[in-house]
Design a protein around this nucleic acid. Structure first.
Lengths: 227, 227
DNA sequence: TTTAATATTGACAAGAATGTCAGTACAGAC
DNA sequence: GTCTGTACTGACATTCTTGTCAATATTAAA
């Protein structure tokens, strides 16, 4: 990781110094690549150390560049944060809708719930989003709005299709919304307090898995009943 | 509760100068009172503006004192944060265990869940605790550990008592743990993403209430089944 | 009233963080 | 090879924030 630059020698060395510093060639990336690396590093720091760990100097060191380079690509620290939000939002959206998509036509709630929890755990996405929600930065972001609505729509369509097959009455849309909402709340909650609660109650990794299965079954039973 | 100071007493002016600064009488509180006011202000800022809003100068201004006064009472900013954590922890514990206590011998999950959600919403307790969990400050605090265990124990005792009355088999303890865990996760999640999700799906205040009722019923059905 | 304790303050110190700027070095176009 | 655009850097400026300190004011005890 420690790709130190240290290019003080410069021209002065000329042909003199034995092997001071081979004038470490300055690395030059494409703008997109640089932005990606910076966002990755910022994300990692955020996931590990929380909001206070998001300092330009630190991120720059992680990437192996100077901190003005970050300013160059994102204008300001706020710009970086906004870019972080935007990327997390679209990534989350893609994963969630992808999981519900035609590739996995599973009717089983357990699968869906597993995907939701994993998508939010991955790379600390939930922690990142939680932080920005706590700081009140998400109000401007209307992206999040659509995601939830889209998902509820997809789920509702599934349920209606399914109940038609079975010749049962169509499920209430609000019920579907509540199922999605509970799942979202629980997943976010687990991302934040999960580890603590697990430790507090002596639940190991396997126990957490059992909890998720238990939760999925709870919802499944509910869905079957309602259908 | 807005015990604003603002004591521009003119007394000192006597008959002297053209009322430069009437030497605003300095307010002196007891140490406990001062600590309480400071913690209240800090809590309010944290709930409203998130972690970044926790600056000594701002808190001091809210209380109507100078920022060194805060340092005097809490040693350092970290000391203030720790005091905040400790108070939130004990308050939460008291409210939760109080709600489950003998005063309200309700067997109805709806009541309990309502209490949990309210206790965490109140004064932004969940947001406060979430923030400190995100910043990794809670690892040292073993208080939280006990709370969850205590609650699970109380709940389990209730269920066993209840099932004995009905002559049913005793419930699995892990099931009780999972119920408590889901409730905690959901409550924390709602405290953070609840507002956003509600807006995104066009759910008004009343809708949120319906959601909680729906959730309580879901758990109630489960508990009845298991019992 | 005098005294002791301490809550409180203004001024200052030290450090950290973001942001600016002029210049440098690398890549592709010509 | 030369030129041009721009990713990148080091040094500096600025602002903000916590923390220190000596001094002051207020309350309660003596």
């Amino acid at each position: 990781m420690s790709s130190v630059a240290k290019n003080s020698a410069a021209a002065s060395a000329a042909a003199a110094g034995p092997a001071e510093k081979p004038a470490a060639k300055r690395v030059r990336r494409t703008a997109d690549e640089a932005r990606r690396l910076i966002l990755d590093a910022a994300e990692a720091r955020l996931a590990k150390q929380g909001p206070e760990g998001l300092r330009l100097q630190d991120i720059a060191r992680d990437v192996g560049i100077s901190h003005p380079a970050i300013l160059h690509h994102f204008e300001s620290r706020e710009g970086l944060v906004r870019a972080l939000i935007a990327r997390a939002n679209t990534q989350l959206r893609d994963r969630l809708l992808g999981a519900l998509g035609s590739d996995h036509p599973s009717q089983d709630a357990a699968d869906h719930i597993g995907h939701v929890f994993e998508a939010l755990s991955d790379r600390g996405t939930a922690r990142l989003l939680s932080w920005l929600l706590l700081t009140g930065r998400a109000t401007e972001q209307s992206d999040a709005h659509n995601v939830m609505s889209e998902i509820v729509d997809v789920l509702q369509a599934r349920r209606e299709e399914y109940s038609k097959e079975k010749g049962k009455p169509a499920p209430d849309k609000e019920d579907t919304l509540f199922v999605a909402m509970l799942t979202a709340n629980a997943a976010f909650g687990e991302a934040i307090v999960g580890r603590q609660l697990a430790e507090a109650t002596g639940l190991d990794q396997d126990g957490i898995k059992r909890f998720r299965t238990w939760f999925a079954k709870l919802l499944n039973d509910h869905l079957e009943d309602k259908r």
